[in-house]
Design a protein around this nucleic acid. Structure first.
Length: 183
DNA sequence: CCCTGATTCGC
DNA sequence: GCGAATCAGG
């Protein structure tokens, strides 16, 4: 994944908006939060102000280098095999989806959901979303890379790690549970 | 433990 | 230039 002008632009914008490095990494996709932070520094973007106390320049620890036969995994997106796929005509449903997303954003809570572990952005397309997948839109709607977060609640909690109380559509929770019991 | 940003340095 | 590994801190 290379830093195209377009990606750098998005990075700069999101950083300015105050998103954390990991959030930005999730939005951009294909990069780690370390990559984002590294890029931020290389771009000489202003760092995060520290509240109150003069905290300041971390000394310099001198990181150890591991000899490295470098088993470095990457590919942060779990494979996209979507099990449940909801049948929704894309065209007409678009309006509905957007309304739901707006609703979700109104009550969005920008904080991690306690102990709840939610899989990271799976880059789902609209037709791959289910009642319990995060419908937070990502990317440029006019471009091919547009997708949705797609994080799925593993335990019926209505939170996405990065997008707060998202469009899990609690209305359908009962039905989902019923389906789960039946299978 | 979770997370955050900062830094170093092999690649 | 890139970013994993690491550190320091909340």
């Amino acid at each position: 994944m290379n830093w195209t002008d377009e990606r750098v632009e998005r990075l700069t914008k999101l950083w300015a908006e105050g998103l954390s490095a990991s959030q930005i990494a999730a939005q951009l996709g294909g990069v780690s939060r370390n990559a984002v932070i590294g890029k931020v520094h290389r771009l000489n973007l202003p760092g995060r102000a520290k509240a109150g106390g003069a905290t300041s320049a971390t000394p310099r620890p001198a990181a150890k280098r591991v000899a490295s036969s470098a088993p470095r995994p990457q590919s942060n997106f779990a494979a996209r095999p979507q099990t449940r796929t909801v049948q929704r005509p894309v065209g007409a449903t678009m309006v509905r989806e957007e309304m739901e997303m707006d609703d979700a954003q109104e009550v969005a809570v920008y904080k991690p959901a306690g102990n709840i572990v939610v899989p990271i952005n799976r880059k789902l397309a609209l037709t791959e979303l289910t009642e319990r997948t995060c419908k937070w839109p990502m990317g440029d709607p006019l471009k091919d890379d547009f997708h949705f977060c797609g994080a799925e609640s593993p335990d019926n909690s209505p939170y996405c790690k990065y997008h707060g109380r998202m469009a899990y559509q609690p209305v359908n929770e009962r039905r989902n549970k019923a389906v789960a019991r039946a299978s």
